[in-house]
Design a protein around this nucleic acid. Sequence first.
DNA 1: TTGTACGCGTTATCAT
DNA 2: ATGATAACGCGTACAA
Lengths: 335, 335
Amino acid sequence: MRPTINDVSRLAGVSIKTVSRVLNNEDRVSDATRARVTAAFATLKYRPNMAARTLAGHRSFQIALACDNPSPYYVYEMQSGIRDRCLLDGVRMVAQPYDHDSDRLIDDIESLIDGSGVDGLILTPPATDYPEVLALMARRKVRFVRVSPGTDLDLTASVFIDNVGAAAAMVRHLLALGHRRIGFITGHASYATSAQRLAGYRAALDEAGIAFDPLLVRPGDYDFASGAAATEALLALRLPPTAIFASNDDMAAGALSVAHRRGLSVPAALSIAGFGDDAIARYVWPALTTIRQPTRLLGYTAADLLLAPEFVVKRIDVPFELIRRESTGPARSAG
Amino acid sequence: MRPTINDVSRLAGVSIKTVSRVLNNEDRVSDATRARVTAAFATLKYRPNMAARTLAGHRSFQIALACDNPSPYYVYEMQSGIRDRCLLDGVRMVAQPYDHDSDRLIDDIESLIDGSGVDGLILTPPATDYPEVLALMARRKVRFVRVSPGTDLDLTASVFIDNVGAAAAMVRHLLALGHRRIGFITGHASYATSAQRLAGYRAALDEAGIAFDPLLVRPGDYDFASGAAATEALLALRLPPTAIFASNDDMAAGALSVAHRRGLSVPAALSIAGFGDDAIARYVWPALTTIRQPTRLLGYTAADLLLAPEFVVKRIDVPFELIRRESTGPARSAG
DNA sequence: TTGTACGCGTTATCAT
DNA sequence: ATGATAACGCGTACAA
């Protein structure tokens, strides 16, 4: 049988309450007793029963990551960062993928709260901006942190990068390479980051005194296929762009595949820039210019906020990083 | 307050035991009572307290996926398949990444069993073949299913594809394209699949009467960088291969990046074949020939075995698929 | 077919 | 600083 607190208390010659105190790092325990109990833990290889702790203590030592799924890499990096942080506090992270246009979204999240009895929740877009979700969290009084929220930044604790600034930096980089016609592939309309990145694109063009051309902006939805389709459309223009900025790495990969199929030597003929966690870009094309969105750090920091003993509403702005790889200016029209 | 069984029993006018019976789909309940209880569930929006069920019933309605991490895509696909299957039974999947050369591996798994009190476990390579892990499972009497085990296939329930056959099919494909010098990048030595895939490669060469050349085999460890390094080495040979078969998609991506950096027009000058879940290949290079290892299906099937009420030792062989895309024979020496 | 009473392992209350 | 005892919500012999 697995040892219980009772077994430990008998071995250490104290009451179960004292054992519980040691287990929970409470104060009022003499050093001598604490030592005896700790020793008993070790000799019995005691491991607390989580179900019992949860039932009696109204806490589960679990937090959840509710994550939508445009890019497996994004999810992976986010999960890793959060899990690493949780490990430090002996908390388990449970991953809860969700589908942003599922009509069971609210139900899924509520059943997560009840089912796992999680102590807190980390939300990624676009659920971060759904009023029903925010209402649910308020109603259930669950601690939560939002990653890259698009609205009401001050409403709750949240973590984000400067999407506008990052996109502008990327466009400035392309401009510095000599590009004047820069295509832009947007993200999914449900994501606030899509609009933010587009705003950065426009801001940088304005700075440079380049007129905004709506034809150069094509809709995408953060996946490979939409990136490829948007690229086809851009390259079919009468005056095609010499560079394309895709709003995330997955779509940049799609753009590259099209460029390649068409025999365009990238990046000589076409600069393609991605905006993501750099993981996919690493696989796809060493010469790709990328804004590194530090997904893992975002995850880590979100967990940090959530696990803080004094859980207060805070905003954390995580710095982004512009990664320039070898790439050249426009060589010829990319049509 | 959240409603409890007590509240439900009061509303339905029955005892808590009867409510419990309905909750657990037990037999001896009259249809009328069952209906009343079900109605009470609905009006109260009752959700069972998992901690209490676990504590009293000695089951957690959770299974774990212990997964090592050569390729994020593999992990992602595996998780998705298992989660889909679990949903059907109202079971939660908890993901437990592990590091195959961590010395805390056994401890991690045991704390998973104790901590989450999981009802079952799905193991992926290489822990599937670690004697200490198998001993632990036996000692703790935990249900488990192995994915792609390399040894003792009959020891436990397990799910796999025919790695030898798949690798041979791939090589036959490359041979049919006219290739005679085919490079091979192995997987990590800890994984049994590495040896199996190499065996398939050799078998196909034997069939074709082509002598095995050890120089054409380079070690890799299932990640992008090692695939790139191995490719550099292969292309530096006095007689370089005209085709390269990488033991998974991540390494194939690495191979492609090197070919590209060298200005080789793939696949005109060099055929590169991958062996994986096809996800990375889709991103990297549409013309890549790939063995589709149906990872999601593997996961789904593994969960199927684990969740079956009558849990018996079974082996399930999942079919693989050879995906041929447009690709040409060797055009010139790829050096 | 249905109900009663106890136990699961821990935390919390209120003593001492 | 420490201990006795009552919750926590549900499953399960056992009884009816």
